[in-house]
């Protein structure tokens, strides 16, 4: 019996998985290494010395385009999208626990928005603002365009959460005399906090890296991914790798912090003997 525990072709499957992981990560590791090229180094190996030259270049006054402006915009927009996605998805998730007219329609719209080719959404927003005579800007049309991409993830995560949510907790709170708002604030939100952190992660990172939906919706100035794409077409030095290393580093930091926060919250729930959030 114990022997049948190990599924067939185990070594083969492990090998395939390992190769896939290498396939996923090798390119990004390569450009991280290459971003430390010496001043004489080029876009490919061999490394001609090791230096911080290209990072210094990136911070230098002669750096190409408006990288730091683009970075600031992307970061600010990411935060705005993150907050909006969490709040709006939570509200919509709560709404779906009751019946309301248009519930199915809204779900289908969210799914349609998720799989709609981004170029179509972007074109529509661009044309709409153009026709209405409203200037396109990253914090108006850009924000809206990003939300059409992040909110479906938020809503689907909320569905997953509330499908497993035991209403007994709220009933108990109500029996103790808690108001509707108190129930949500002190019972529901603490229980689903790890998932809300997950939605925040989706909101920030998907916005921070968004390109396709931004293209026509962002207005005159670029966000970082647009700037990167523009840089890529005439990149001749590893300076683009240095920027790639920095922005990927930031993404990893955000992922690490949010995953760690979710784990810590869950641990604390466990430690306090709460069975909150468990199926």
């Amino acid at each position: 019996m114990a022997r049948s525990e190990r599924p067939p072709y185990f070594p083969l499957m492990v090998t395939i998985f390992a190769i896939f992981v290498v396939f996923l990560y090798a390119p990004i590791i390569t450009i991280v290494i290459l971003s430390f090229q010496g001043p004489e180094g080029g876009l490919t190996f061999p490394m001609r010395g090791v230096s911080m030259h290209w990072f210094v270049e990136l911070f230098g006054p002669q750096s190409i385009g408006d990288i730091w402006g683009a970075f600031r915009r992307s970061f600010a927009l990411g935060l705005m999208v993150m907050v909006c996605t969490v709040v709006i998805s939570l509200m919509a998730g709560l709404a779906y626990r009751h019946r309301f007219i248009g519930a199915t329609g809204l779900l289908y719209v969210a799914i349609a928005s998720l799989i709609m080719p981004s170029v179509v959404v972007s074109l529509g927003i661009g044309a709409g603002f153009e026709l209405a005579g409203i200037e396109r800007n990253w914090y108006t049309s850009g924000l809206g365009a990003h939300l059409t991409w992040t909110m479906p993830f938020g809503l689907l995560i909320m569905f997953a959460v509330f499908n497993r949510f035991d209403p007994a907790f709220e009933e108990a709170a109500r029996d103790q005399g808690a108001s509707g708002w108190q129930t949500i604030r002190y019972v529901v939100i603490p229980i689903i906090l790890p998932s809300l952190i997950g939605i925040a992660l989706f909101g920030f990172t998907l916005s921070y890296d968004e390109l396709a939906r931004s293209s026509q919706a962002i207005g005159a100035v670029n966000t970082l991914p647009l700037e990167l794409q523009a840089m890529q077409t005439n990149a001749t030095t590893p300076v683009i790798y240095a920027l790639g290393t920095l922005t990927t580093g930031l993404s990893f930091l955000v992922i690490f912090v949010t995953v760690a926060a979710a784990v810590i919250v869950r641990r604390r729930q466990d430690r306090h003997g709460s069975d909150a959030g468990k199926a």
Binding site: V87, I88, S89, M91, A92, L94, A95, Y96, R97, H98, R99, F100, G102, A103, L106, V109, A110, A112, S113, M116, V120, V121, L123, G124, I125, A127, G128, L131, S141, G144, A145, L147, T148, M151, L155, G180
Partner: peptide
Amino acid sequence: ANVIAYLQAFPMAAIFFIFFILPICMV
């Protein structure tokens, strides 16, 4: 409870309407 559900769903519905449904009609 029903009214609250509409209020809770409203922001998401409104944003999808302005930035997704209208733009698709625009196209």
